[in-house]
């Protein structure tokens, strides 16, 4: 927006020059036959794998099935059920809106909706600290960074790079299949019965565990952050070296 310039400036010419050859990449490099073969393989794999998973479930989970089934899951409190469906609904809606929005800033706003809903899911799961960290790090940090990135790299509004319709259909098919298979497997699996109503995990428990059992991942994460900091500074400094 702010870097919008009149058409025909150097920037625009360069953009169109860069973009022209890349328009045809999607269709020419990968022949239709090969693509069909790939799809066939994928469908075949799914068709083979799903019965396999079902069979394995029968083999492995069947023996332990009896004690699991004997315990009837207690009905959750009405408030929890209502809240869960409201929050899960907004999570899913936000995620789908991220998929189907074209404007990148609106995508980021829908991502904010999703992230905050996920934080509420964590509250429902009695993970208060994770929820608060999700709010700070994701909603407050990462999202701001993303929007900042959008602002710095905002394109001219007349340059559109969007995928072809075919590509979208393929992607929707793959992801729909993926979600359907996952949902099928998840609902078919017999999970251990839910525990009693638990208190929220205290921060002290988490901290103790981080400092004893998980001290190595904790330190590695710290080192990683250090490396990332140096790396980000290096990436940002490139500007000065180039003329």
């Amino acid at each position: 927006m702010y870097c919008r310039g009149p058409e025909g400036t150097v920037l625009t010419k360069r953009l169109t020059a860069e973009l022209a050859p890349s328009d045809s990449i999607g269709s020419s490099r990968l022949g239709g036959l090969w693509r069909l073969c790939g799809w066939g393989l994928a469908v075949a794999a799914v068709l083979v794998l799903v019965p396999e998973v079902r069979a394995q479930q029968k083999v492995i989970i069947e023996p332990t099935r009896v004690p699991y089934q004997s315990v009837e899951a207690p009905p959750s409190p009405l408030l929890e059920v209502l809240l869960f469906y409201a929050v899960a609904g907004s999570t899913v809606f936000g995620a789908l809106a991220v998929c189907f929005t074209k404007n990148i800033v609106r995508m980021a706003v829908w991502l904010l909706v999703t992230l905050v809903s996920v934080a509420m899911l964590y509250f429902l799961l009695a993970a208060n600290f994770i929820a608060a960290v999700q709010l700070i790090v994701y909603a407050g940090g990462t999202l701001i960074l993303l929007i900042f990135g959008v602002m710095l790299t905002s394109k001219s509004p007349w340059v559109k790079f969007e995928p072809s319709k075919v590509e979208v259909v393929y992607a929707a098919a793959v992801c729909g299949l993926l979600v359907a298979v996952l949902a099928f497997i998840l609902t078919a699996t017999i999970w251990p019965p839910a525990q009693e109503q638990l208190d929220a995990t205290t921060v002290a428990d988490l901290g103790r565990s981080l400092m004893t059992t998980y001290v190595v991942p904790f330190e590695v994460a710290g080192v990683l952050l250090m490396i990332v900091m140096v790396g980000a500074a290096h990436l940002a400094r490139q500007e000065k070296q180039s003329p």
Binding site: N128, V133, G140
Partner: peptide, 23 residues
């Protein structure tokens, strides 16, 4: 029990509104 972190995080979300408004 995590009120401090929660309030900080929530106030961080406030900034998104400002940035989106400007954009």
């Amino acid at each position: 029990d995590v009120a401090l972190v929660f309030i900080l995080g929530v106030l961080g979300v406030e900034v998104v509104g400002v940035i989106v408004a400007g954009w």
